[in-house]
Amino acid sequence: MGKVSDGIAALDAAAACAAVRADLERGRDPMELIDEARVGLQEVGERFDAGEYFLIELIRASQVFQETADLINPKLTELYGRGESRGKVLIGTVAGDIHDLGKSIVKVLLDCRGVEIMDLGVDVAPPAFVAAVRDFGPGVVGMSALLTAAIPQFRTTVEALEAAGLRDTVKIIVGGGTVIDLDAAMLKADHVASDANAGVDVMLAWLDEAGGASAAN
């Protein structure tokens, strides 16, 4: 840990950004810096898991991380071009449901592990998932729902992917407070996540198995 990761872990945007600026000025490798920022965010994730940090603090940490990443990224692209990604994940809350906090946590956790993410937002209709799978070419699709009434949408969305001939190109994971007791097969998904961390582990294993973004495409 250094000043950047400490700043993120302490939710102190000013300190984290000041440290980034100073490091960049001193000519520190931006790759190293972004890795350090990820460590900070991961630390917050772990404290959240341990019950030391609360949901709002996790959201805030992701904002602070984003602020530092915005400073680091231009330098990163300048020196290295578009970086290596560990793979691509498409994520969204299904049609009829507007709860997005759980999904956003998943996004943050993937982000700090070097995964490229496309977030379709909330109330995402099946055709939008299909179009994004086609255009973005993710290895994994993650869907979230908190309303019991939205649960059938998991299946409907998977069926839309089947109809478009895209089902076999992706692994599908679902999550959200009301789904944890459900059976993946019933939803036509590959996995039902009990919480964000467990889900992220499964997704990373899938991505690593497929050998990163290129293999997933």
Partner: peptide
């Protein structure tokens, strides 16, 4: 709402 507020806030 908001859910998950830390005790100090």
């Amino acid at each position: 709402a908001p859910p998950g507020m830390p005790p100090d806030l």
